[in-house]
Write a protein that binds this DNA or RNA. Structure first.
Ligand code: FES
Ligand code: FES
Lengths: 144, 144
DNA sequence: TAAAAATAGGATAAAATTATCCGAATAATT
DNA sequence: AATTATTCGGATAATTTTATCCTATTTTTA
């Protein structure tokens, strides 16, 4: 469904959010360990998220990644997915036609529409805070 | 959402079904042209579908691909997707955890569940016949 | 000011997906 | 029997995605 990069991006964001509530910055190393991802690859993704202003990165000793505590509840899953995978999952044709167009639909267009709408809705309505709280309360997990 | 291979496989199956209603076999060349796909790559996918008994292939002059006319309405989109992309789209964890497990869910598990269920349902309920008829009646298209 | 602890980012490599080429096999037609 | 029209399948190549390595830069601390 999502690229590996996007999966890592989502998991990393959740972990950063979790720590940001406690005012803690987290290092790349700690993130990669927690979400079980390759360190250098994860670094690229975090840079990407930082460029999109979804997370903040701080260089130097005592540096790391963080998210403004008061922004966490307003960051939507869709922003992360969009920053990394782009919008083709919402907007692209399910059968790869050049554009998804009501007036020139592919054979699965109508059937797909509701699924895609639901996915879009879900991503646009789900925020980082709820996801982070599920980790904190131990009802959800970031690895294996 | 789906791999290119799967997109081609679905479109090819629809085109083959369409012709099979009229008792016509279609050649690889005709298929690739119709669905705007690379010929040799499409050949591999068709072989795959044939091995999964979703389509029949006939070698030699006057050969080509066909689907048993009476089977068309019973072939589900899910069978095609499964043959080519496997079942990870239904069964795999949305965040790439080793397994999607109710008892050890990832943070998006609950949110994803309904989207995935709807996708699964749609794929399992949609058959080749309805898709082919939309092409025949001109309300849907296989290219650009 | 030097050392240490971080991220940034360019260059590369490995793996997976997508795409191409070509000879072998098969079947109908001449 | 030869020719022609096909699919099959192995080898290879191109592209994209995923992953790694190394150096530069920034910031804190001693
Ligand atoms: S045209 Fe294919 S999904 Fe809309
Ligand atoms: S555990 Fe991730 S989707 Fe079920």
């Amino acid at each position: 469904m999502f690229s590996k990069a996007c999966e890592y991006g989502i998991k990393a964001s959740i972990f950063i959010a979790l720590n940001s509530y406690e005012g803690k910055r987290v290092s790349l190393k700690a993130i990669a360990k927690e979400i079980n991802s390759p360190e250098a690859f994860t670094a690229k993704i975090l840079q990407d998220l930082a460029r999109h202003s979804i997370i903040n990165s701080v260089k130097g000793a005592h540096g790391g990644f963080e998210i403004d505590k008061y922004a966490i509840s307003s960051i939507k899953l869709s922003q992360i997915v969009n920053a990394i995978d782009g919008d083709s999952i919402y907007k692209g044709c399910g059968l790869g036609l050049h554009t998804c167009d009501e007036d020139h639909p592919c054979p699965v267009h109508d059937k797909f529409k509701s699924v895609r709408e639901e996915l879009k809705d879900m991503l646009e309505k789900t925020n980082l805070e709820e996801l982070a709280l599920d980790i904190k309360s131990g009802v959800a997990f970031l690895r294996t």
